[in-house]
Write a protein that binds this DNA or RNA. Sequence first.
DNA 1: GACTTATATAATTGACGACTTATCTATTCT
DNA 2: AGAATAGATAAGTCGTCAATTATATAAGTC
Lengths: 112, 112
Amino acid sequence: MSHAFDILGDPVRRRILELLADGQRASGEIVEVIAAEFAISQPAVSQHLRVLRDSGFATSRADGRRRLYAIAPERFDEIDAWVQRFRRTWEPRFEALATEVARGKKARRVEE
Amino acid sequence: MSHAFDILGDPVRRRILELLADGQRASGEIVEVIAAEFAISQPAVSQHLRVLRDSGFATSRADGRRRLYAIAPERFDEIDAWVQRFRRTWEPRFEALATEVARGKKARRVEE
DNA sequence: GACTTATATAATTGACGACTTATCTATTCT
DNA sequence: AGAATAGATAAGTCGTCAATTATATAAGTC
């Protein structure tokens, strides 16, 4: 299976995923938006949808003569895992949150 | 500036970043590893390093006649931000943390 | 059953980007 | 200063992949 970033290294596919992030959409609706924004044809979009399906970023199910696409979240975890090792910023933030939580818990315990 | 994923949509660049994640490295050291793993030339690696520099994923400083490369973490935040919207797993966790923080803050205010 | 609508596939073309080799620049060593 | 080393840049080639147009499949409509 090709690496997640190989799939996401395309602006059209990223945009499609953004659309799907708001909820499932029929192929035709996606084509409408993408064709307008990127000035590409229906088959072009359809091919991107195929790539997203094949690579496990999206799923599709038949609904009459339409195909409904939805996000398949699994592969995003993969990206997240890869990116984590480079992020120093969230670490302290997370620490801060964890600290807050700990203090909050304590505070509430005192209150009760 | 080109999108983060356009830069990471290349296995060689991803590997270089992985190397840098373990700490700064001279160009030559990177070439040694990458040339072995991917069977490409020194200029090829150098060009990838340039892309990483220009795109803000890495920084370089001169050290004698060597160039020391290091990770520049900023752009990884961008990726992380993009990916977050597709991850359902951490969402609840974060919500939980945020809630805790909010409650903790309130609790402490009452205490004071 | 013919027609239209929704979407996918096939075949082909073209652009872009990742290589190559050759060369340039800068630094260290003798 | 000249040679050697480290690395970057230049110019050109080539493969890949994202488009295109044309066509196929499948589901609803008349």
